[in-house]
Amino acid sequence: MQRKNRTVIAVFLAPAVLLYLVFIVYPFLSSLRYSLYNWDGVGPLKDFVGLKNFTYILFSPQFAGQFWRAVYHNVYFFVLSMILTSIIGLGLAYLLMRIRETASRWLQVIYFIPMVVPPIVVAYLWAMYLEPNDGAIPVLLKALHLNFLNIAFLGSEQWALPVIAVITAWAGMGLPILIFIAALIGVPSEVLEAAKVDGASEFRTFFSVVFPMIKPTFLTITTLNFVGAFGVFDYIFIMEGTQAGPNYATDVIGTLFYRTAFGGFGTTAQGMGLATALAVLGFIIVMMASAILVLMQKRASADL
């Protein structure tokens, strides 16, 4: 290769690569290292403890319960958002394909708007609607004579997490809709015509013709939902606080990590070493799931 090209390559890559190395790659590697130390974040790293932070998180009576509860909540969040995005997201995308293009474009814009609204706004808006007794939703439920549903949703151990998952789905539906539309555009119309000629009902066509063809996209959505559900933090922190109340009913890896590293409001930080070990465990879960899903997706695409 000519010398000149090498200079060009170096100059053009340098700014992005430097930024990325210093603020993403280096912190990532540091987290791996910190996780092997007992360290409160001040002073030099010197108390090397090997994998003790990990065994403490996974097996100790003091911490394991909190960890597994958080993982369970993340999984719960994932399952719920998967159900919501599959039914509502795919349903809306399917309907959007059947109407006139101009109308469809406008609706796609509208459906995407909540995705750009800051989470802090979404969180307080819905918190206000959910205010016990006076909020719009309790008022509405009372008007419908559904008094038994007049619950302090965000203050209920049973309801808080599913309600926050629904709010998150409300805010995040725009992207899955667009991804499903991109996939549905790719379904050849001859295939649909053929199904129609064969006398297949619309339901039948959808489940036996369309659905198998968009399976790879479905797996993409699953991956996005999984990464999203394991990264969930903003809404829970804003609506339920550092302690992820009521009584830790909404505690997820994100909030547990925050308390462990930074403490706050009645919790003392337990150390940066322990917190990074927690982050590493979360990272391993996300990586393993993504790897499996990407492999499944490759296979599904190859089958088409």
Partner: peptide, 29 residues
């Protein structure tokens, strides 16, 4: 050029990186 694919994949990997994984070192830095 050599390393092209490696650099590209390293950027891509950031898409699935949970922010907790970089939070503490960034705070310290």
């Amino acid at each position: 050029f050599r390393g092209n694919q490696l650099i590209y994949l390293t950027f891509l990997a950031g898409l699935a990186l949970p922010i907790q994984m970089i939070a503490v070192p960034l705070f310290v830095l």
